[in-house]
């Protein structure tokens, strides 16, 4: 089957001969877009999070055939023309990453969550919304601060420690 998707705002068509191929493996093994990571392959860690039609999903549990005709955004599609997306900037400034392996998924989740719910100035809401993205290094606090920054709403109760 030929899968036609809009991939990071560009049309992409690829012949896939095997219905078992997941969107994650399509990206990583067949399109060489390896920014999206495989941490568990079972929807339990969030490292493979991408946006499909603007919604964040676990690409490991999505068959490639099922996304035919839809738009897919991966971490490679965030920066535009060599300029980082604001969420990428704040992840660096808030040290919201350590090993970096979960980071692409965290970023896509951070971008996608605003499409799901009305955001309040509330770090608890961000923590809950980001709980599908595990970070074993423990960068959670920086991640929440970065997302609060990104959504333009870092409140005093969100800044729980002095930043340098």
């Amino acid at each position: 089957m030929i899968i036609r998707i809009e991939l990071n705002e560009k049309p992409c068509s690829i012949e896939v001969d095997d219905p078992r191929v997941t969107l994650l493996d399509l990206l990583r093994e067949r399109l060489n877009l390896t920014g999206t990571k495989k941490g568990c392959d079972r929807g339990q860690c969030g490292a493979c999070t991408v946006l499909v039609d603007g919604r964040r999903i676990n690409s490991c549990l999505t068959l490639a055939f099922s996304v035919d005709g839809r738009s897919v955004t991966t971490v490679e599609g965030l920066a535009k023309g060599g300029k980082l997306h604001p969420i990428q900037e704040v992840f660096i400034s808030r040290d919201a990453l350590q090993c970096g392996f979960c980071t692409p998924g965290q970023l896509m989740s951070a971008v996608g969550l605003a499409n799901e719910m009305p955001l309040r100035n509330d770090p608890e809401q961000i923590r809950e919304a980001m709980s599908g993205n595990l970070c074993r290094c423990g960068a959670y606090q920086g991640i929440v601060e970065a997302i609060m920054d990104y959504h333009g709403a870092l409140s005093t109760d969100g800044a729980t420690h002095e930043t340098i």
Partner: peptide
Amino acid sequence: AASGQLRNA
């Protein structure tokens, strides 16, 4: 239930 990503699918 689950996570934001799972609820989206």
